[in-house]
Nucleic acid binder design. Structure first.
Lengths: 193, 193
DNA sequence: GTCTATAGTGCGATAGAC
DNA sequence: GTCTATCGCACTATAGAC
């Protein structure tokens, strides 16, 4: 099932210090954007100096890539779980639920990181990214490549990730947001829900 | 109808040179983000020096604000047109159509600018922005402030603006994208269409 | 693994000639 | 309105002590 050749999802076992760096970087990137976040800001948030951060990662780009791949890996595991379902219908259901859960749980970071111009540039030639997007698209659209299906899919993905970050719902509880997102997403796809 | 006190939508008549600066700034901001765009890049795109750009605007922040307000003004005129309708139903219809038109016509810039972290920060205390958002929300939700209505509204706004920028539909013609977005948005709201 | 110190570069912004 | 030239600063990144 996961026998995709040459791909090694989490083959880099980051140290605890590296994971802490990634965590604070994600928070700062989501607030100020990648380009608007300096290594000084990351170092200050970790309460160490810049040199200490450079001991964990050789360049800023490596931090950006590690942070982006961290979010990507979670999306990938949702896609994995969906593909493991016996039918296309079940797969789509698991996918929607997984995306909603992921988006709500990490609503401050996921969308901000994956849509940042710098990350978009990095991911343009990124194999795992293209693979995950391709599988995601296939799960949702199937073999129908017509405009209606494609726009509907883009709207659904954008609606879920965008709505979770939207100021209109900033004060809603995670549970309430999750339930409403799920219900509307299913209705949008014409699924029972 | 537009008698909102103390608000002066386009009271600053920018010169032709200033409008050219705003136009190239919007393009660059949407590609690299606000923080990732330097005044040197703007000057190069205009084929002048930085000093010439500083003759049009005193600071980079002024350029960012002018560019963001340019996009906001177009959204505001859509809201104006919707509020001029005689019924709530017609108003909502005009609003959806206007947002779809605007988003498709300027699909590379609108969403990127208005969701940029720097612009979000500028607009946090921006009167016109808050006013337009409040009126937009009122037109779509009315007096229903329940979670379902709020999530549905956030999803709709995010779906339209996000879908237009989504790579899944990057190669679709503007006309096709416009028609599909409109149809799906109306179906999402339970409107005839 | 963290520090101080610093190199080298590009940034936003300004002065003043034309 | 555009230019050359420059200031002061923050940035990424490195060197070397502890």
């Amino acid at each position: 099932m996961k026998a995709v050749l040459g791909r090694e999802p989490m083959s880099t076992p980051y140290s605890a210090a590296q994971r802490r760096t990634i965590a604070v970087a994600l928070e700062l990137f989501s607030q100020h954007g990648v380009a608007g976040t300096s290594l000084q800001m990351i170092a200050d948030a970790l309460r160490v100096t810049k040199a200490a951060v450079y001991h964990q990662f050789n360049t800023k780009d490596e931090i950006v890539l590690a942070a982006a791949e961290f979010e990507l890996a979670q999306l990938e595991s949702v896609v994995d779980a969906a593909e493991a379902q016996p039918s296309a219908k079940l797969a789509r259901n698991v996918l929607i639920e997984g995306i909603v859960d992921l988006t709500v749980a990490r609503r401050r970071t996921v969308n901000a990181i994956l849509s940042d111009p710098v990350v978009v540039g990095f991911f343009a030639d990124h194999e795992t990214w293209r693979d995950v997007m391709h599988r995601l698209r296939r799960l949702l659209i199937g073999d129908d490549a017509g405009p209606e299906a494609r726009v509907r899919t883009a709207m659904l993905v954008a609606a879920i990730s965008g709505a979770a970050t939207h100021p209109f719902v900033a004060d809603l509880d995670d549970d309430v947001l999750r339930i409403e997102l799920l219900r509307l997403a299913r209705r949008f796809l014409g699924l029972p829900g």
